[in-house]
Nucleic acid binder design. Structure first.
Lengths: 298, 298
DNA sequence: CCATATTTCTGACTTTAGTCAGGTAATATT
DNA sequence: AATATTACCTGACTAAAGTCAGAAATATGG
């Protein structure tokens, strides 16, 4: 990887932790240690469960428990067993706790304001735009792609979202049972793969590979959640599927797609897929693509 | 201030501390507490003085001293009195210390690489560009403008840089003694002001105001260091000078400038200064500007 | 109902990070 | 030469942050 690029990233990290981290440490200004301030803030105006706090802050349960006990002693929070699972405790702010929370919130707001305040209007806008851009790509870089069980609930939820989107975008609506089938059972090794793109654990995209024998394979179920579009996730999914296909001896990869999915068609064209005559009678397919010679490129 | 803008800044802060801050705490992965890792890293391959470390990290001298003692016990560093001032101690890494340092450096590099690695080429470039932009504007927002003593060394150094730049940019060269004079003594209240723009304490720009009586004032010595140009520092300096002028009863502000300083002329035009006939015989001036009615706008 | 897993709590710890009040040696100032 | 200042060190202290090993209550799958 380019050395200059790396040092630019490192410089950014330093600059940001210097300017923001410094100010961020000033949660402190609240007269509360950082740990407590973070916890209190994380409880939020509407409360949460201890479980959730532990996950979000990544802290030891004993540590959290003790801080919560201290908050209760101060009259900032109350806790009750969760309605659905009495092992789980639900933490809520008391009115007094909410006042403290508001103060922290205000502090955080002031901090942000202090950053923008010295800048002129156009500089502010440019900073905000650049921030949004950085944020998007940091998000993109946190997306991981990994195989998943096509029978699992989370994959089903992902497919559900996919089908719903197709139904919304196709003029004709979309009925999965009329489409070219891809049973979950076909998408597990050795006859196929199902890949999931995850952001912080949550599914934000998927793609499947069906190995058909005689060197043929087919790409199915390519979908990326709207929240992470334009960040190259589909590209990465496609590449990952191609790698699995190549490793499984596939030489010719095919796929079908609808005319309304213009981004998808561009993606395939960019990756060396050429349009071919229909190879199936999927009523929703309007374009068929093929990429040959995967084994040669191995 | 716009509420939406504030929440965008806060979102960015959260995202960055989440994605980078988390990893940054992983200096930790070194098996060393954060404080020690930071100190070791800050010593650098070529060593520094304890004094410098204290200033850069903002830590208590006792704290640093103890950590350094621990490093010495581990055989990571050695320290010797500084050649020029024997009170100052110079800390250097031993070969073993340098190995640890290299490891930390490598870790930091890997971290940066892990961030870029999942992205495609164009996404990488866009992320790096956005990072640079954010960094620039964070720097801009850290610039503070405040009155300074025009006799002080740092102001003299600033003016020196200013004159040097004029000499380089003017076809004719530049000799301060031939220019329209502005003695330091004229630039202290009540007859004037000298403002300095500072970034982390260091001077990065200046501007002066000369109050001439009868409602007349003159802007002098406007200069911004190349490192922070295009970030609105000159604009802020100008506004600050105008405020002082207005408060001092000035109604008409004048200034002269050279034709080669195009950015300066744009700045003045944008701020309501109109070109007027020469009001002095400064041999380096080619354009004269004036803004009237400061008291009206008060 | 039983065996097992989850979730939280408690108490007893350790480590990390930092502060503060002197003390010593070298340097600067008058 | 006397005095003040600077740079660093030492030792004694504290608060914050975090870890670990159970215990108790509840849930879950058979």
């Amino acid at each position: 990887m380019d050395d200059d690029q790396l040092s630019r990233v490192r410089r950014f990290n330093r600059a940001v932790t210097h300017r923001i981290g410094v100010l961020d440490g000033n949660y402190l200004g609240s007269g509360r240690p950082l740990g407590e301030a973070r916890l209190l803030f994380e409880i939020g105006r509407d409360g949460t469960t201890v479980r959730d706090l532990r996950a979000r802050l990544g802290l030891d349960s004993g540590y959290i428990s003790r801080m919560l006990r201290a908050f209760e002693a101060e009259g900032l929070t109350t806790s009750t067993p969760d309605a659905r699972d009495a092992r789980v405790r639900r933490v809520t702010l008391t009115p007094q706790g909410r006042r403290e929370w508001d103060m922290l919130d205000q502090r955080s707001r002031d901090r942000a304001a202090a950053l923008l305040e010295p800048l002129g209007l156009s500089q502010r806008q440019r900073l905000l735009d650049a921030m949004a851009e950085v944020e998007r790509f940091l998000r993109a870089s946190a997306v991981v792609i990994e195989p998943a069980d096509p029978f699992s609930d989370e994959v089903q939820a992902c497919l559900q979202a996919y089908f719903q989107e197709l139904a919304a975008r196709f003029d004709t609506g979309f009925d999965p049972t009329r489409s070219a089938p891809a049973e979950p059972g076909e998408l597990v090794p050795p006859s196929g793969w199902f890949l999931l793109a995850r952001l912080d654990g949550a599914a934000v995209g998927c793609g499947a590979l069906k190995i058909k024998g005689d060197g043929y394979g087919e790409i199915k179920r390519m979908w990326v959640a709207p929240s992470v579009r334009g960040l190259g996730v589909a590209q990465r999914l496609l590449r990952a599927l191609e790698e699995r296909a190549t490793a499984a001896g596939v030489d010719i990869l095919q796929l079908d797609t609808n005319g309304s999915l213009t981004e998808a068609r561009k993606l395939y064209a960019r990756n060396g897929y050429g349009e071919i005559p229909p190879y199936n009678d999927n009523p929703y397919a309007q374009h068929w693509f093929e990429k040959r010679g995967l084994q040669r490129l191995r």
